[in-house]
Design a protein around this nucleic acid. Sequence first.
DNA 1: TAGCCTACCTGTAACGTTTCAGATTTGGGA
DNA 2: TCCCAAATCTGAAACGTTACAGGTAGGCTA
Lengths: 352, 352
Amino acid sequence: MKTTEGDQKPVSGMAEPVEGERPTLKTIAFMAGLGVTTVSRALKDAPEIGQATKNRVQLIAKQIGYRPNRAGVRLRTGKTNVISLVLNAQSEIMGLTSNMVYGISEVLSETPYHLTVTPYSVKNDPMQPIRYIVETGSADGIIMSRTEPNDARVRYLTEHGIPFATHGRTEMGIEHPFHDFDNETFAYLSVKSLLARGRRRIAMLAGPSPSVTYYRHLHRGFSRAVEEGGASTVAVSDIDVDTSLGRMRNRMEEIMSASNGPDGIVCCSGSAAIALVAGIEAAGLKIGGDVDLVSKQSTDVLQWFRPQIIVFNEDVRHAGRELARAVLRRIAGVDARELQSLSYPDEHDLRS
Amino acid sequence: MKTTEGDQKPVSGMAEPVEGERPTLKTIAFMAGLGVTTVSRALKDAPEIGQATKNRVQLIAKQIGYRPNRAGVRLRTGKTNVISLVLNAQSEIMGLTSNMVYGISEVLSETPYHLTVTPYSVKNDPMQPIRYIVETGSADGIIMSRTEPNDARVRYLTEHGIPFATHGRTEMGIEHPFHDFDNETFAYLSVKSLLARGRRRIAMLAGPSPSVTYYRHLHRGFSRAVEEGGASTVAVSDIDVDTSLGRMRNRMEEIMSASNGPDGIVCCSGSAAIALVAGIEAAGLKIGGDVDLVSKQSTDVLQWFRPQIIVFNEDVRHAGRELARAVLRRIAGVDARELQSLSYPDEHDLRS
DNA sequence: TAGCCTACCTGTAACGTTTCAGATTTGGGA
DNA sequence: TCCCAAATCTGAAACGTTACAGGTAGGCTA
């Protein structure tokens, strides 16, 4: 039987859908004179539906602006079509998180996925939001940052088989999707850059140790370059990238005022760099003269800050895109090992 | 009949729920020997359920960690328990958006609401994400920024009866929830501050005109103060807060190099301020000497920028909290006029 | 011709919740 | 004693979707 477009026999027991309501499968089924099952299948290009029918159904769906009801799909299939970004709600001076959000959204906007954001307070247990998402099944995939070498969240999610991707790596023998900035190379190149400027006593402001993995990468690159250059190291104690900028400045002033302060400093955060500069200058030293500073920045702000320093850019928007793609492909069943990527430091000497 | 705790007669036709699955109303109903209807009502403290039953049901629910299935609720009631933050995906140098997200989340975290973020590209129609949300019914409430004097989104949402709150005000005779920074007072006080420092030729870098409402507020406060002080005005043409920092710097250099440049400048954005400073200094002028600069900042970054300038702080995290509270109360049926709030500028002379 | 396979389509059930329209019990008043 | 109202509780239906287990028609094989 060849059904033509106009052939819309009203199916028995099926009332005409109300005008003005949001169209559902039933609406299309009524208009096409088909069963809802057929419509459902036709819309997802199932092989058991005839090509003519598919075309007709898809045309109608398009014309009346049909959009599947998310609650219906979710209730039936358990699939939420949601990716959750879990983050630490540290107040930010620079727009790191927002740019990552934009990156993620860029990728998700071409899919049926929505992005929900689940910040947790710094003081709280990082596991709490993760457990919540898993227990309530409120997302199909999770993106998270502040990855630790032995990360309880990674273990938990892996055990529960929930797709996720981390910003940063772990060191626990579990293969999982991640995207990371190559902090080791960054630290290595930064030290090289300082050595090339004749600096011999090198210090570094890193991430909180041992909680965050990239701390180790930084130190690996740092040590290697210092060693290769035959330079020496000055420890920066008591402060890390999480310290308040005020305390950072004060501590830096102390360190630089000491008799054997560093003459070259590597800093792994743009906002920290501005506090270090303040501390250095408070100690009466001149950047570029007495001491050089190299910093990573995740936002183009240090360009505008003076004195200008040497920076390496990290593109967090790109990281967001990579992470989103990774979770999506993980959800699609791609092997975790194929979803691990690094991005590389990009040096800019801002000093004009 | 007084039902005791132990009295759990299995209801006919009701199979024991599978262990390990997420508990549902049925699970509780089975355990309590009640119907799902009763359980549903007991959990929401309906008046037609006996107190003893309520206590028992609520205890069981708590013990087994029952959480209502969002898809079930959503499908049945149409309520999504989602608030959507719609924003313009401009790359940000400073962490404005993330702090607003944290503020919103702070409030939502004590409610059943989730936060989804829907960025739209700067080039795209701002109506597009709004229409999408309304047509697919994907949120119970919307928070949006970049509010315009005659805002199509506000009109559309009002007509469709969708609760929302805007960051910024409109001027279209529609009462709706908003939170706004008092830009008029900010501009007024800024000019006053410049006048007090003996500045007489005042300029301002404002938001894009006429697209964004706060442009008008800024100008109102600006003009009033300039007039009161008998000072004169220097127009800053071609650039606004949306201009790229590079162009902003160059234009500023031109303006300051002209014979009749301003000697006092008001700037309504922290990130713009750093570009203005660069332009001013490129023109060979000294801030604090030849010219004074007053800026609003939404993130504590200008503290660390030198030369230090006079700033007024805007607390975006607080704005986020206010906006979230406003949408929630609007959803609860509170009158829009009771959900309009302003926050006031807070001056800090950073110059030590 | 019968039987079978393929291609296409169908209704029913189920996901978990709330609403609707009762059902049952209890206590009290007449 | 009977009846009514109030206080509690109940199953069935519905929201929109997909999975399951068929159903029908036509053509091909034997």
